[in-house]
Amino acid sequence: MNTFTYKIDDHLSLAFPHLEAAEKLFSLLESDRPHLEAFIDVLAETRTSDDEKNFIKTKLHGYAEGTDYLFFILLDQTLCGCIDIHTIDKKVGKGEIGYWLHSSYTSRGIISKSVQAICNLAFNEFGLNKLSIFANVENLPSNRVAQKCGFSLTSIEQQDALLYGKLRDMNHYTLLKEQYEKGFDE
């Protein structure tokens, strides 16, 4: 995949999104739709590669506006998922991290390493001070990622997300820049 990348380790990197990857990204989603839709209902709106292209365009516009940073997750140059910082408030210096990974790549530490990398970018390159992760209380792997990456559970937001017509409780995790830096100083 020919694009700007941020190297995490010898095998894993984050890649700046580009429209030419929309078809590949859509195929990846389609091949794992039941797994991904278990916790991400917005995928129901992504039915064609054009929908995916429009999503990438929206994220690129958000990048230009400073409200979104989307990256493709690459393992050995193969697209396996996405991670982003969205709902960025530059005035306050905060944003929310979201991610998904194709099920054939889970249990390898890919998301944890990607979250750690995006935290480094957020705090040291993008000028943010606070990051949040909202994880469905039933999504145990996503909750473990937040905990493993040093995020603190700050609240359980009852009936905070609607997933296929049912209100779900969400764990709200946060990480401040000073906590992040302290974790690496010890």
Rank of each mutant, 00 (worst) to 15 (best):
L140Y: 07
I133R: 07
V145G: 00
P141Q: 04
F123C: 09
F123Y: 10
A122K: 03
P141G: 05
F126Y: 15
V137F: 03
C119S: 14
F126L: 15
N139P: 03
S142T: 13
F134N: 14
A135Y: 03
E125G: 01
F126D: 04
N139E: 04
A135R: 08
R144D: 01
N139K: 10
V145T: 11
A117G: 00
K130R: 15
V145M: 02
V115H: 05
F134A: 13
S142G: 07
L140N: 10
N136F: 10
N120M: 08
C119G: 06
I118H: 00
S142A: 14
F123L: 05
C119M: 09
Q116F: 09
F123V: 03
I133K: 12
L128Y: 06
N143S: 15
L128V: 09
S142M: 10
L121E: 02
N120G: 09
E125D: 02
S132F: 06
E125L: 08
R144S: 12
I118Q: 04
N136W: 06
N120S: 14
L121C: 07
L140E: 08
K130N: 06
F126P: 03
I118S: 05
A122L: 11
V115Y: 03
E125P: 00
Q116G: 03
G127F: 02
F123D: 09
V115F: 00
N143V: 15
L140C: 02
F126R: 09
F126N: 07
V145W: 03
A117D: 00
F123Q: 11
L131Y: 08
S132M: 04
R144G: 00
N129Q: 12
C119N: 12
V115R: 00
N124A: 02
F126K: 11
V145E: 01
I118P: 00
N120H: 15
A122S: 14
L140D: 11
N143R: 15
F123P: 05
R144C: 01
S142H: 08
N129K: 07
E125T: 08
V137R: 14
N124I: 01
R144P: 00
K130Y: 02
L131H: 03
P141H: 08
L128A: 05
F134K: 15
C119A: 13
E138Y: 11
A135H: 04
N139L: 11
S132R: 02
V145N: 01
E125Q: 12
K130F: 03
E138S: 11
I133H: 07
K130E: 12
C119R: 02
N124W: 01
E125K: 09
N136R: 10
N143G: 15
S142C: 14
G127L: 10
V115I: 10
L131D: 02
K130Q: 13
L131R: 10
Q116A: 13
P141V: 05
V137S: 09
N129E: 01
A135M: 06
N139F: 12
K130W: 02
A117L: 02
I133W: 10
E138P: 07
Q116S: 15
N139M: 13
C119Y: 13
E138H: 14
C119D: 11
N124K: 06
L128D: 06
S132P: 00
V145D: 01
E138V: 04
F126H: 13
C119H: 10
A135T: 12
A122H: 08
E138R: 14
P141N: 06
F123T: 07
A135N: 10
C119W: 08
S142P: 11
N124D: 09
Q116H: 04
K130L: 14
V115C: 04
V137P: 00
